[in-house]
Design a protein around this nucleic acid. Structure first.
Length: 556
RNA sequence: UGACCUAUGGUGUAAAGGUAACACACCAGUUUUUGGUUCUGGUUUUCUAGGUUCGAAUCCUAGUAGGUCAACCA
C-alpha cells in the first residue's frame, strides 16, 4: 500500500530536516521566542510563537522564552507578565524563562575581549557625528577620529563607562569593522551606550546597556539556540550577527528570516497599537477590536483557532496580506463544533400568540448543539408573549423571505409553527407588535400537523427573558491594507467597529454562563460573556457573525 | 543612483527539471427545525524578455515591480 503523501514542509522545516539529517545537531534543535517586554503580544507574534515552538515540537527540540530586555527606557514588568500569560494561553510551554539581562556580565566580558583584539573602540563622538560618519546606503562612511585608540586606553575608557564616570551620550563602544561596507550595519555599529536608568530587573547595577546587535546573537549562542528565527527586516543584521559570533569564537547559532504576518483591516505595529490605546480610540490593549492576543481572547477567539490560523497562513519570505476572512473561518470552524446554541433576541419586537392560554408556560427541551449529540439538551420556557427579531418580520415581504409576514407561516425554533394574522403599528409607522396563532399539533419533535415551513426563527419568552448588553465588533479599519497609511491610519478607523446594544433579551439559561464561555446565539453568531458582566447585568461580546448568505442575497 | 530579500488564481501556501495543486474567498446546487452546518460541482494562476534543456513555476542572464537597510530602538 502506498503511504499517504506527507504534508509538504515549509522552508524552515526543510532547513531543520536537512540539518538533522546531516548530523549537525545530535542533541536536537533549540529555538527561542524573544519578545522585548515593551508592549502586548499580537497575532503577528502568535505566528512567531507557533513557528518557534512548533518547529521544536515537530523535530523533538526545545524552545526558550527569552525577554530581549536590553533597553531599560521602554521595558516594564507589566509587559513581561502579559507576555508569559499569552504564550501559555496559546498552549505552549517553554523550556526556560530567560532574560538578555541575565547575560549583562558575560556580554561585558565579550566586549572587553573584542577591545583586546582591537575589534572594538570607545568613541566620544556625538550621536549626530556618528550618524554623519555612517554615510548613506549609496556612499561610504568616514572613520571616527577615535577609531584608533590603543587597546589600553579603550579598556580603561570602557571600564570607566561601566563605573559610571560619564553622563548619558558621552561615549559609546563601537565594533571596528568597515566604514565603507555596503551593508550599513557593518559600518562600525554601536555595541554599548550609556544610560543612567533603572532596569526592571537589574535595577541600578548597570549604566551601560548592550545594543540589540551585540546582545541577541550572543544570547542565542550562550543558550545553544540552533535556529534563531526572526522576521525579514533583520536579514541585513545577519552578517553582523555572524561577525560577533565568529570574532568571539563561540557556539555558532544561525539566524533565519521569515515574512511577518500582515492582516487586512487592522494595524500591527506596536507603535500604532499603543497610539490606539493612548488616544483612547480603543479601550485598552485587550479591547476586543485589537489584534492583540489579549484582545482576541476577550473577543472570544480560542487558542486552538489561533494556532490553526497560524498553521494555515504558512511561512515564506514574501510580503503578504492575509484576509481577515481566514481568521473568521478558523474561529467559526472551532466554535461550530464546541459552542452550545442558545437564543437571544438582539433587536426585539413583541409577538403575541393569540390562541395560547394566558399564563400557561411550557418547558421545552431543546438540543444544545446539533453538531455534538453529547452536549445534551436544555430547558427553554415558552409562553403566550415572546420577543422575536425585528428583522424577522416584514409588512410587505418579498418572494424569497422565509420568515414572518401577514399570513405567513414560520416555525419558532424548538416550539410551534405559527401563522401571523395581525400586526399593530406605532405612530411613526414602525411595527409595534405582531399577533399570530400557533398550531397546537406542530410541537417540535411531535409534529403531526403535516405542514412544512421553510423558515425557522429564534425567540425568547417575555416573562422569562433576561436583559443583557451586547457589544458588536467589526473590523477596526475600513481599508484592507494599512501599510501605506502611515499616521493617517486614524482617519480610516471604522466608525462602526463597536456598536453597543443595551436592551437585548436572552433566554434564562444564560444566567449560568461564565466569563469567556463561548455560545452561539442561534442565527446571529458566536458570542462570549465579557468580564464586565455583573450578577445584575450580563455583557456579551460578539466574536464573529455566522456566514450570512441571506444578507448577500439582499444586497444583490 | 548602492547592498540585500522577494515575485505562482481575488488572498495565502504547495509543486525539490517531468500532468500547476490545497485552503480561504466567490458562484451554483445538496442537506438542514439556524438563510448556520454538511456534501457536490464550478470560476480564476506561474512578472517580462532572452537563454540552457527532449522538457522550465523551478536553472542562468537581463529587465520590471514590491520590500528592507542610513535609531545611542528591537
Amino acid at each position: 500500500m502506498e503511504d499517504a503523501k506527507p504534508k509538504s514542509l515549509n522552508f524552515l522545516e526543510e532547513i531543520v530536516q536537512e540539518n538533522l539529517a546531516s548530523g549537525l545537531y545530535p542533541q536536537g534543535i533549540f529555538t527561542r521566542f524573544p519578545p522585548e517586554p515593551n508592549g502586548y503580544l499580537h497575532i503577528g507574534h502568535a505566528k512567531s510563537i507557533c513557528l518557534n515552538f512548533g518547529l521544536a515540537q515537530k523535530f523533538g527540540g526545545k524552545t526558550n522564552l527569552r525577554f530581549d530586555d536590553t533597553n531599560p527606557m521602554t521595558e516594564e514588568t507589566e509587559y513581561v507578565e502579559s507576555i508569559k500569560k499569552d504564550v501559555s494561553w496559546l498552549g505552549f510551554t517553554w523550556a526556560n524563562e530567560l532574560y538578555a539581562s541575565n547575560y549583562f556580565e558575560q556580554l561585558y566580558e565579550y566586549a572587553l575581549e573584542l577591545i583586546k583584539k582591537s575589534l572594538a573602540y570607545v568613541d566620544d563622538s556625538t550621536a549626530e557625528e556618528i550618524a554623519a560618519q555612517k554615510g548613506t546606503p549609496t556612499s561610504p562612511g568616514t572613520e571616527s577620529p577615535f577609531r584608533n585608540r590603543s587597546v589600553e586606553e579603550n579598556v580603561a575608557l570602557f571600564q570607566a563607562m561601566r563605573a559610571g564616570k560619564y553622563p548619558d551620550g558621552a561615549k559609546v563602544l563601537r565594533a571596528k569593522i568597515d566604514m565603507a561596507h555596503p551593508n550599513m550595519h557593518m559600518r562600525d555599529p554601536l555595541m554599548y551606550r550609556i544610560r543612567h536608568v533603572a532596569h526592571h530587573r537589574t535595577g541600578n547595577a548597570w549604566c551601560i546597556y548592550p545594543m540589540y546587535d551585540f546582545a541577541h546573537g550572543q544570547s542565542d549562542s550562550m543558550e545553544g539556540i540552533t535556529h534563531s528565527i526572526c522576521t525579514l527586516e533583520f536579514d541585513v543584521h545577519r552578517p553582523l550577527y555572524d561577525w560577533f559570533i565568529d570574532k568571539l569564537d563561540i557556539f555558532a547559532s544561525h539566524q533565519f528570516e521569515f515574512a511577518r504576518l500582515n492582516l487586512s483591516h487592522t494595524v500591527m505595529s506596536k507603535r500604532k497599537l499603543l497610539q490606539l490605546v493612548n488616544e483612547k480610540i480603543v479601550h485598552g490593549w485587550d479591547d476586543p477590536r485589537m489584534p492583540t492576543i489579549s484582545g482576541l481572547r476577550r473577543r472570544g477567539f480560542t487558542a486552538a483557532s489561533i494556532r490553526n490560523f497560524c498553521e494555515r497562513i504558512g511561512v515564506a519570505k514574501r510580503d503578504n496580506l492575509i484576509d481577515l476572512s481566514l481568521l473568521e473561518f478558523c474561529i467559526r470552524e472551532d466554535l461550530n463544533k464546541s459552542a452550545d446554541r442558545v437564543m437571544a433576541v438582539l433587536d426585539p419586537i413583541k409577538l403575541v400568540i393569540t390562541n395560547y392560554p394566558d399564563g400557561q408556560v411550557e418547558d421545552l427541551s431543546i438540543e444544545n448543539n446539533p453538531e455534538d449529540p453529547a452536549s445534551g439538551k436544555r430547558i427553554v420556557p415558552f409562553s403566550k408573549e415572546l420577543y422575536i427579531e425585528r428583522e424577522d418580520f416584514m409588512v410587505d415581504p418579498p418572494k424569497k423571505f422565509f420568515r414572518l409576514g401577514p399570513g405567513l407561516l414560520v416555525r419558532l425554533k424548538g416550539a410551534f409553527i405559527i401563522q401571523c394574522d395581525h400586526f399593530e403599528l406605532n405612530p411613526d409607522g414602525s411595527v409595534k407588535e405582531i399577533h399570530a396563532q400557533y398550531l397546537p399539533n406542530s410541537k417540535s419533535g411531535q409534529d403531526t400537523s403535516g405542514i412544512h415551513v421553510k423558515g425557522t426563527i429564534h425567540w425568547v419568552s417575555i416573562p422569562h427573558a433576561v436583559e443583557a448588553e451586547v457589544r458588536l465588533f467589526d473590523r477596526l479599519l475600513i481599508v484592507e491594507d494599512a501599510s501605506e497609511l502611515g499616521d493617517d491610519f486614524l482617519k480610516f478607523i471604522n466608525p462602526e467597529s463597536l456598536q453597543v446594544l443595551d436592551k437585548v433579551y436572552v433566554e434564562p439559561s444564560l444566567r449560568e454562563a461564565h466569563v469567556g464561555e463561548a455560545v452561539q446565539f442561534i442565527r446571529k453568531g458566536y458570542y462570549c460573556l465579557d468580564a464586565d458582566s455583573t450578577s445584575e447585568r450580563l455583557v456579551f461580546n460578539r466574536t464573529v457573525t455566522l456566514k450570512d448568505t441571506w444578507a448577500k442575497e439582499q444586497n444583490k
